[in-house]
Deep mutational scan, measured.
Amino acid sequence: RTAFSSEQLARLKREFNENRYLTERRRQQLSSELGLNEAQIKIWFQNKRA
């Protein structure tokens, strides 16, 4: 289980509010910017949509 920092969570929530689905390219960008792997971001979005 991933423990996200408050900064990472704030960024993910802001991104989710703008778009509930990420393109592969956007997921790669977020992964690089947040220091998370793409799978972690993908799962976070899946869980948030559920």
Score class of each variant (00 low, 15 high):
residue 40 Q to L: 14
residue 10 A to K: 07
residue 39 A to M: 14
residue 15 E to D: 02
residue 1 R to H: 13
residue 30 L to A: 00
residue 27 R to M: 15
residue 28 Q to H: 09
residue 23 T to Y: 02
residue 17 N to D: 12
residue 41 I to P: 00
residue 37 N to R: 07
residue 35 G to D: 07
residue 44 W to H: 02
residue 31 S to R: 03
residue 27 R to I: 15
residue 12 L to F: 01
residue 29 Q to R: 09
residue 8 Q to W: 02
residue 40 Q to R: 06
residue 3 A to D: 13
residue 28 Q to S: 07
residue 16 F to I: 03
residue 12 L to E: 00
residue 29 Q to P: 00
residue 36 L to C: 05
residue 4 F to K: 03
residue 26 R to Y: 05
residue 46 Q to K: 11
residue 2 T to D: 13
residue 24 E to I: 11
residue 48 K to F: 09
residue 31 S to C: 09
residue 5 S to W: 04
residue 15 E to S: 04
residue 47 N to P: 02
residue 43 I to D: 14
residue 3 A to N: 11
residue 16 F to W: 10
residue 8 Q to I: 11
residue 50 A to D: 09
residue 50 A to L: 10
residue 26 R to M: 08
residue 38 E to T: 06
residue 10 A to F: 04
residue 44 W to S: 01
residue 50 A to G: 07
residue 28 Q to G: 06
residue 22 L to S: 02
residue 8 Q to Y: 01
residue 18 E to W: 06
residue 21 Y to A: 04
residue 17 N to H: 10
residue 44 W to R: 01
residue 48 K to M: 15
residue 19 N to I: 03
residue 24 E to H: 11
residue 30 L to I: 08
residue 23 T to P: 07
residue 18 E to Y: 06
residue 39 A to G: 09
residue 20 R to C: 12
residue 23 T to E: 05
residue 28 Q to D: 05
residue 45 F to P: 01
residue 41 I to E: 01
residue 26 R to C: 05
residue 43 I to L: 13
residue 8 Q to V: 09
residue 27 R to H: 05
residue 44 W to C: 03
residue 37 N to Q: 11
residue 8 Q to D: 06
residue 33 E to V: 05
residue 25 R to L: 12
residue 47 N to W: 13
residue 45 F to H: 01
residue 20 R to M: 10
residue 5 S to T: 15
residue 18 E to G: 04
residue 39 A to S: 11
residue 50 A to C: 12
residue 41 I to V: 08
residue 45 F to I: 02
residue 44 W to F: 08
residue 43 I to K: 11
residue 33 E to H: 03
residue 43 I to W: 15
residue 17 N to V: 08
residue 6 S to A: 14
residue 23 T to R: 03
residue 25 R to A: 14
residue 33 E to T: 04
residue 18 E to R: 09
residue 6 S to W: 08
residue 43 I to Q: 13
residue 23 T to S: 13
residue 14 R to P: 01
residue 48 K to D: 03
residue 40 Q to S: 11
residue 2 T to V: 12
residue 44 W to P: 01
residue 29 Q to D: 08
residue 44 W to L: 03
residue 9 L to F: 04
residue 3 A to L: 11
residue 29 Q to H: 07
residue 49 R to W: 11
residue 34 L to A: 02
residue 17 N to E: 14
residue 3 A to R: 13
residue 42 K to T: 14
residue 36 L to T: 03
residue 37 N to Y: 06
residue 8 Q to T: 06
residue 22 L to G: 02
residue 26 R to W: 03
residue 41 I to C: 03
residue 36 L to P: 00
residue 24 E to A: 14
residue 10 A to W: 04
residue 16 F to T: 01
residue 46 Q to W: 09
residue 30 L to G: 00
residue 7 E to Y: 07
residue 14 R to V: 11
residue 7 E to F: 07
residue 25 R to N: 13
residue 20 R to E: 10
residue 3 A to Y: 14
residue 32 S to R: 14
residue 50 A to Q: 11
residue 24 E to Q: 12
residue 29 Q to N: 07
residue 35 G to H: 06
residue 31 S to P: 01
residue 40 Q to Y: 08
residue 35 G to C: 06
residue 16 F to R: 02
residue 20 R to Q: 13
residue 30 L to P: 00
residue 38 E to C: 06
residue 29 Q to K: 09
residue 31 S to E: 05
residue 43 I to T: 10
residue 38 E to D: 06
residue 29 Q to E: 12
residue 20 R to D: 07
residue 7 E to D: 09
residue 41 I to F: 01
residue 49 R to A: 12
residue 12 L to K: 00
residue 31 S to W: 02
residue 36 L to V: 10
residue 3 A to T: 11
residue 47 N to C: 14
residue 10 A to R: 07
residue 24 E to W: 06
residue 49 R to S: 08
residue 36 L to H: 01
residue 4 F to G: 02
residue 20 R to P: 15
residue 7 E to I: 06
residue 43 I to P: 00
residue 44 W to M: 02
residue 27 R to V: 15
residue 28 Q to Y: 08
residue 30 L to R: 00
residue 11 R to C: 06
residue 20 R to A: 12
residue 11 R to K: 08
residue 41 I to N: 00
residue 12 L to H: 00
residue 1 R to A: 13
residue 20 R to G: 09
residue 13 K to I: 15
residue 35 G to W: 02
residue 50 A to R: 14
residue 7 E to V: 07
residue 35 G to K: 05
residue 14 R to S: 10
residue 34 L to H: 01
residue 4 F to M: 10
residue 2 T to C: 15
residue 42 K to Y: 12
residue 19 N to M: 04
residue 48 K to L: 07
residue 36 L to D: 00
residue 3 A to W: 13
residue 20 R to S: 13
residue 16 F to H: 02
residue 39 A to L: 13
residue 26 R to H: 06
residue 28 Q to A: 10
residue 17 N to K: 13
residue 23 T to C: 05
residue 19 N to P: 02
residue 24 E to P: 14
residue 18 E to I: 09
residue 17 N to I: 09
residue 4 F to R: 02
residue 10 A to C: 09
residue 15 E to M: 04
residue 6 S to M: 09
residue 43 I to F: 09
residue 47 N to K: 10
residue 21 Y to C: 07
residue 3 A to H: 13
residue 21 Y to R: 06
residue 42 K to R: 11
residue 32 S to K: 14
residue 41 I to K: 01
residue 7 E to L: 07
residue 3 A to P: 13
residue 33 E to L: 06
residue 42 K to E: 15
residue 50 A to N: 12
residue 13 K to R: 12
residue 22 L to M: 06
residue 20 R to F: 05
residue 42 K to C: 15
residue 41 I to W: 02
residue 6 S to T: 11
residue 29 Q to V: 08
residue 21 Y to P: 04
residue 13 K to Q: 15
residue 44 W to V: 02
residue 25 R to F: 10
residue 5 S to F: 03
residue 14 R to D: 11
residue 42 K to V: 15
residue 39 A to H: 12
residue 22 L to K: 01
residue 26 R to A: 07
residue 44 W to K: 01
residue 49 R to I: 12
residue 21 Y to L: 07
